[in-house]
Computed example of a mutant assay.
Amino acid sequence: MTTRIFIDGAAGTTGLEIRDRLAGRGEFEMIVLDDDSRKDEAARREALHAADIAILCLPDDAAKEAVKLAAGSNTRIIDASSAHRVAEGWTYGFPELIGHDKIAGAQFVSNPGCYPTGFLALVAPLVRAEFIEPDWPYSVNAVSGYSGGGNALIDRFESDRSIAFRAYGLGLDHKHLPEMQKYAGLGLAPVFSPAVVPAHRGMIVDVPISLDAILDDKFDEPALPILLGALQKQYADSPIVTVSSGSRDISELLLRQNAEPWDGMELFVFEGDYQARLIARLDNLGKGASGAAIQNLNIMCGLPETTGLRL
C-alpha cells in the first residue's frame, strides 16, 4: 500500500529538493496540483485532506493557514517552516536528539531550522551530559549558502556577483533563537551571528567556548577527548551525523561553490589553551531542510531513515 504525499509549496527551493529526493520512490503516491490550482484554497484543502502525510514548504503564516485547512482530517504533517518549532502539540523533528520513536508516532512534526540543526547537534548533548553550563551566554558564528534565503535571496546573489559576504540578523531577534534555546536546555538565548556567502548551498555553524570560564574544575585532563567522546556517544548509532576524531589534524574547513546536495552532517571539536570551538558542517538544503524532511517522512512511515537520502 502506498502512502499519499502532498507537498504544499512544492515550487519553492525546499519543496523542489524534497520532490527530487522522492522521485522514483514506489512507496509514495504524489498528490500534485497544477499551476492554476496550487494557490487555490479549495484545491489545497482537498489535497491536504486527501493526503496521508503533507509536507509544508511555505512561509510561516502560510504554514499556519495550511494547518487550519487540514483541520478535521487525519493527515499527518511535516512543517519545514519555523511556524511550529516551539509550538504546543508539535514534535521537534530532530530524531538524533528527540528520539525516533517520538517522531514515528507523531501527527505533527516540525522540521528544525538549518542553523539550529548545527547548533543543537553540538551543544545539546554537552549540556545534557553536564560538561558545559546551561546558563552561559553562548555565541554562534555561522555562514550559509544563499539558497537558505529562498528565491528572493537566490536572485539577489546570482544577479549581483559583487556580493562577497552578507551579515544579517543584526536586530539580535532571529526567528531561530527560540528553538535553539529550548532544545539545548539553555537559560539564555545565544548571541547569534548569521551570515551568507556566495555559494549556493552549504553551512558552517561555529560555537566558541572559553573552557576555563564555563567548565570550572570539571576536567583534570584535556577537554578535547571528553567533549568528542560525549558527541561520539550521542551519535554512535546515527548513519547521518558523524563526529570527527581527527580534529587535531584539520587546519581548515571549506564550503564549495559547486557542492552537490548532501544530507549528512559532520561535527568537529577543536581545542586550544583553555578554549574550544565546536563546529558543524552541513548542507542548509539537506540535513538543514529537505533531507531532514525526508528523514522524518521515512521514520513516520516505518521505513529505513536513510532511504532516498544523499549521503
Rank of each mutant, 00 (worst) to 15 (best):
D160T: 11
T91I: 09
K287Y: 04
A164F: 05
E221H: 12
I240N: 14
A142K: 00
G99I: 13
H84N: 13
L282Y: 03
A87L: 02
L309R: 02
E221L: 12
P225G: 04
N151T: 15
L282I: 01
D40W: 01
A80P: 04
V123W: 07
N284C: 11
L22C: 14
D61Y: 07
K182C: 10
L22Q: 12
N296H: 03
I103T: 12
E27M: 03
N151G: 13
F119Q: 04
E130R: 11
P125L: 04
V67C: 02
G246F: 10
R201V: 15
I163R: 04
R281A: 06
A276M: 09
P222K: 14
I250F: 03
I250N: 11
Q275P: 02
D40A: 01
N258Q: 11
G202L: 04
G118R: 01
L122A: 11
N296T: 15
G246R: 13
G113V: 00
K39P: 05
D135R: 08
G72C: 08
A259R: 05
A11G: 10
N151F: 02
L285Y: 05
E130H: 08
P112N: 05
S290A: 15
W90V: 03
L177A: 03
P134Y: 09
H176P: 02
D206N: 10
L56T: 02
P304T: 06
F268R: 03
L69Y: 05
D35M: 04
I5K: 03
E133G: 12
L122Y: 00
S244K: 10
V67M: 02
V197W: 01
G72E: 08
F6A: 14
D79Y: 02
T91W: 00
G229Y: 15
F6Y: 15
Q181P: 08
R281Y: 06
L231P: 15
H84A: 01
R161I: 10
A164S: 14
S244N: 13
A80C: 13
Y138A: 12
F108M: 09
G302T: 12
L255E: 05
G26I: 14
P134Q: 11
K102C: 01
E266K: 01
K68D: 07
I279C: 07
G149L: 06
H100P: 05
V32Y: 03
G26N: 13
H176M: 00
K182F: 05
R25I: 10
